[in-house]
Amino acid sequence: MSAKVDIQFRLNGVDRRVEVPPTMSALTMLRDVLDLTGTKYGCGEGECGACTIRVDGVTLNSCLMFAVDCDGREVVTIEGLVADPAGERLQQKFVEYGAVQCGFCTPGLVVQAHHVLESHPHPGRAEIQRGIEGNLCRCTGYKKIVEAIEDAGKMGSDPKLGGARP
């Protein structure tokens, strides 16, 4: 339709170069251009957190970010947390604690929890609840999600258990 912009960024540890329309969201780029469908569209308005990704260490709603703004940055999606020790541990804990039902909000929550544990290595429940308040879940009632993150955080500083980076 319109002219495309050439951007280059690091995605899940790999340098990527793509051409995207200037109006495209980072979410659409990830899902439709780069085929990374773990990041979900839930509302498109930054209200539900299903599309949460990490950009230069912080978490963002990728539906509200332009794809072109990924240029020069380091982007991590749920797919990038598969081989990451803290990400892997979070996924295991989500499974073990029953924090997954329909699972649609889960990738966004795992990414957000990854950020929460990195900024608060041993968070209490209240900290976790605040940390994920931007992520909506309609199935679980959040309790098991909070428990999963809490347990993942208990091992946070033990490098043998794949502790989060300090």
């Binding site: 773990g38 999606t77 598969v82 499974v95 029953g98 997954v100 699972g103 889960t106 990738p107 795992v110």
Partner: peptide, 10 residues
């Protein structure tokens, strides 16, 4: 849940 690992990994 049997489907949880796939879901948790996106």
């Amino acid at each position: 849940k049997m489907d949880a690992p796939e879901k948790a990994g996106g």
